[in-house]
């Protein structure tokens, strides 16, 4: 199996990727202003370095999404066309993740998702998101 290009943890995001390997999604919480964020060396809002990693709920909504029809990378050749998007976590920060949809469920902007951590290689874990059945799906 060909692996997709994997995000290389930098110092500020290393705990995030370690968390994925332990099966949970995490966010940084600012000890001064409370802003939740991802992978910052200092708070994006107030500049404080008192940032602590906390487990995230794993729930969120779709900020935006797309279905990719071109296999830009060999790792996605068998998946085309595939859903992917930008997810807003319940805690506030947004991150990219593939969208997994059961039959009859389609992604919807602002629709609910929950994280599914996928192991791609020995020490490679990525966050995907399952689109949850949504009572608004049926609306015109």
């Amino acid at each position: 199996m060909t692996l997709p290009p994997i995000a290389l943890p930098d110092e500020a995001s290393l705990p995030f990727f370690k968390g994925l390997a332990h099966g949970h999604l995490s966010v940084q919480l600012c000890g001064r202003c409370g802003t939740a964020q991802l992978g910052n060396p200092e708070c994006s809002d107030c500049g404080s370095t008192a940032l602590d990693w906390r487990p995230a709920s794993g729930r969120g909504t779709i900020h935006s999404f797309t279905r990719i029809h071109i296999a830009y990378h060999q790792a996605f050749a068998d998946l085309v066309p595939y859903w992917t998007g930008l997810i807003e976590l319940e805690e506030g920060p947004r991150l990219f993740g593939r969208l997994l949809c059961d039959a009859g469920v389609r992604p919807r902007t602002d629709g609910p998702v929950e994280v599914v951590i996928e192991q791609l290689g020995d020490e490679v874990f990525v966050p995907n998101f399952r689109c949850l059945a949504d009572h608004r799906q049926g609306e015109p």
């Binding site: 997709p4 290009p5 995000a7 290389l8 830009y72 990378h73 990525v126």
Partner: peptide, 20 residues
């Protein structure tokens, strides 16, 4: 470009190039 940090998740999410 550089798949580093949180933004690097775009590639494992399959978001390549400007179109995506």
């Amino acid at each position: 470009k550089s798949p580093s940090g949180i933004d690097g998740l775009r590639y494992s999410a399959g978001l390549f190039g400007g179109a995506a």
